[in-house]
Design a protein around this nucleic acid. Structure first.
Lengths: 206, 206, 206, 206
DNA sequence: GATGAATGAGCTTTCATTCAT
DNA sequence: AATGAATGAAAGCTCATTCAT
């Protein structure tokens, strides 16, 4: 379910046909912002977002009253997509495949889409209440994946959802930093290996 | 060789006393830039750096012709410190302790010092030739640590210096993202565990 | 005749019931504009007026094609109220009480209602033809008050309606400027005293 | 003494020759602002001020960090001029001529220079500490004029400096409002007459 | 007729960079 | 060599006005 459809949820049959264009524009602005910020970084100008969305700059500010609000909305959007993905992954029969498949998918995207990993870390934006809500949902969704994986013996028992996310953030950045595909693949493999049981050394090395 | 001494390179014969203050100023500006950018992010104004250094803004631009050059110099400075640290760590008797001690030290700093981890990843700045040089030095220094650790059986044999750095970058970001000390400690432990031998699963899961 | 009825003038035959809401809206917008501009100054946004009036911004512009037209309408409205007041004051038996009572009432309001005095002076708005009509009516109404007061020996004979209004404008601003009630009362008293006979010094001081 | 020379006071002989141009520019910006705001009102753009001063817009903001600060500086400048004028007027032999000459001079300027009278009333700008200081000086300077005039029997005894200023503000606005020279002259005369002794009517009309 | 979303010129403000002193 | 005043190109944001619904 895309965020656009959420609107439909609150307006089951018909409500205000007036807002059809507004809705369309809000979605276009959000998509444009996602693309522009991914390509040029959060320093990209709001004007660039407007141009990309094919709307006037006033329209951007009508929907998102400050640039920070826009950034936040993009963040929330990205996190929401993660939540969706995590939830659908939980349907997978094999709990281990479900968890690690999800993690690898996210990491893969990060390597491509500049600053996608930052969606998880808040990327310089002061995370507010709104983000807090989605963050909770993400934690819950990943908790499901993690618990099932632990029950199936595919995940270390000493980590919770928060730790899994932290490791995911780390792996994403490792993937972004790696200069070539081979390094990236190996480094990510190493990090994810740390999550598998057989885990913490018992030899006292640390 | 400190970055300051590089200036001496351009005056092979004698170091004129005239340049004493220039040298001092360059160092002060660099230190100020490091502090200011760490505290306020790379968006901080050059003027703020000048003020912190106690010099006029013209002086900053005399030493670093653009803001990007200044950022780059800070980056190089940070990486050089890493190189120094890695080199001195190689002196440690226990190769495993040497490597992991170094890694944990760097990660610890990252959690504290805003954007220190970004020094390794280039932090939005287009890394140029100059950085390339230091990066080579860092790779070499870490290669020494890694090789010795592998010889001592403390590090997986399928990773090289590049992979170790990638994992380090990842662990640093994981540490930065973690909301509390316990999560941070566990997540970092998990990631570093992945580097230890006993490594890649043999069960065909990946 | 209220400003609302002017609409009727354009529909000489019948007042279609259709226009009932339009009329109501025009009045609500005008009242809202008066309140908003008084509270926030003429810099207040048209949107704020619409919100206060409980109508869409499009409705405001339907009734008043530009912001200046809206300001002008507010001005006319205020002046019309003054005219009404002056006319009803002329009914008073004592011509002196009628005039000075009117003046003091206007001044009192000025001290309270931000920029009320500016209604008389045009307050930065280019006064156009429409205002000119009401201004004529005001001059006439005050001329009646002044003439009667002069006949009764309560007003200097060397002033006409224009001068009385000028003095009234001055007294209003003096009242607005005065930092406290005592200063205000004394200053206004001084200014109005100048209007009473016994008037211009004959001692050659000016 | 112009505001420019005040600088000289603090730098009796030589000090920082560097600031010669800065001083010149500050004065030019201030003069330009005074002219532009007088001509177009306080809504005039800062850019217009810069253009008029023949400097870049950055220069305006270097000297006055916000537009409000610029407005305030203009205000202070105007008030300071008033203070100077009042002080030099106090030198006049005839105390009555000194006071009324000063008042008429100010009023005359108001009629010409748009919004000059507003310098006294704060004209929509939130008056801050700085303005407060000058206001105190103005009160003191006018107090001298008023006291001397009262001693000489040229001014009502029931008014103080605050009341004189309030009346002055009123007279200025009356002058600004008056549509023609004759009305202006008469109205101003009437208001100033109220300040002369012989003052409050004793006939019980008020 | 009413609505409010869209528009874009224009405003204030910041900041990297230049250059006269 | 150092200074900091001057510059002006953006950037974020507002608001009168238009127009599709």
């Amino acid at each position: 379910m895309t965020p656009i459809e959420r609107y439909g949820v609150e307006t089951p049959e018909v409500n205000k046909p007036l807002r059809a264009d507004a809705r369309r524009n809000r979605a276009r602005v959000l998509a444009a912002a996602e693309a522009v910020f991914a390509a040029e970084g959060v320093g990209a100008s709001t004007e660039a977002v407007a141009k990309r969305a094919g709307v006037g700059i006033g329209t951007v500010f009508r929907h998102f009253p400050t640039k920070e609000a826009l950034l936040e909305a993009v963040l929330v959007e990205r996190m929401r997509a993660l939540v969706e993905h995590a939830r659908s992954a939980s349907q997978d029969g094999d709990a281990g495949v479900a968890l690690f498949g999800f993690l690898e998918h996210v990491i893969e995207q990060s390597a491509t889409k500049n600053a996608f990993a930052d969606a998880l870390s808040g990327a310089g934006v002061d995370v507010t209440q709104v983000v807090g809500d989605v963050r909770g949902e993400l934690l819950a969704a990943i908790d499901v994946l993690a618990s099932r994986a632990q029950a199936a013996g595919a995940l270390r028992r000493d980590v919770g959802a928060a730790e899994v996310i932290a490791v995911l953030v780390g792996a994403s950045h490792a993937a972004m930093w790696a200069p070539d595909a081979k390094t990236r693949s190996t480094a990510v493999g190493v990090i994810l290996d740390g999550l598998r049981p057989g885990g913490p050394r018992k030899d006292g090395l640390r």
